[in-house]
């Protein structure tokens, strides 16, 4: 059974490293649902977060193959409640006069922000887990979503309490 898995890895922050990681997925026929990359506090190290769909055997291969890459310093499976996950979206929604108040109410309830306003649109910024983003999108859909930019999730392991 193919299930979603989220994994993060610390990698050398050097040219070509992302391409090694992504090339591994395409070359071996593994799937990538989403991908986030940015530098960490140590400028020599980047964090890559990948969501993939795989069965247990394939997942084992993906993890081993990633660990085998010389530039992958550390790899962790972030699936499950031990890690905090967040994703973000920018949603450009049609804002006709009769919908404007309703949209703002929704923004308020979901604790998101309007970051751009026009006569005919709002751009809404939202962060949260995947469920929250989906719920918000479902509510906004009837107004007409013009465009959307969505990050994949990023994740951090919770520290011991």
């Amino acid at each position: 059974m193919n299930e979603k898995h989220i994994m993060t890895m610390l990698v050398d922050n050097e040219p070509g490293v992302l391409s090694r990681v992504v090339g591994l997925f395409s070359g071996k026929g593994f799937n990538i649902e989403s991908l986030c990359v940015a530098e960490t506090m140590d400028s020599k190290v980047s964090r890559i977060t990948i969501v993939t769909k795989a069965n247990t055997e394939v997942l084992e291969q993906i993890e081993k193959q990633l660990r085998k890459l010389i530039n992958v310093i550390k790899l962790r499976d972030m699936t499950g409640p031990k890690a905090v996950k967040r994703e973000m979206a920018l949603i450009c929604v049609h804002a006709k006069p009769e919908h404007r108040a309703e949209i703002l109410r929704i923004v308020d309830i979901f604790r998101c922000n309007v970051v751009d306003v026009g006569l005919e649109h709002y751009i809404i910024e939202v962060t949260g887990d995947a469920a929250k983003l989906t719920a918000l999108l479902n509510l906004l859909k009837p107004m007409g979503i013009k465009k959307i930019a969505r990050t994949g999730p990023i994740a951090l392991y919770r520290e011991p309490k």
Partner: peptide, 14 residues
């Protein structure tokens, strides 16, 4: 050549 040989080397460097 680093791009070309990435999938068929153990590792490569520019």
């Amino acid at each position: 050549i680093v791009g070309i040989t990435r999938p068929c080397t153990k590792h490569n460097y520019l």
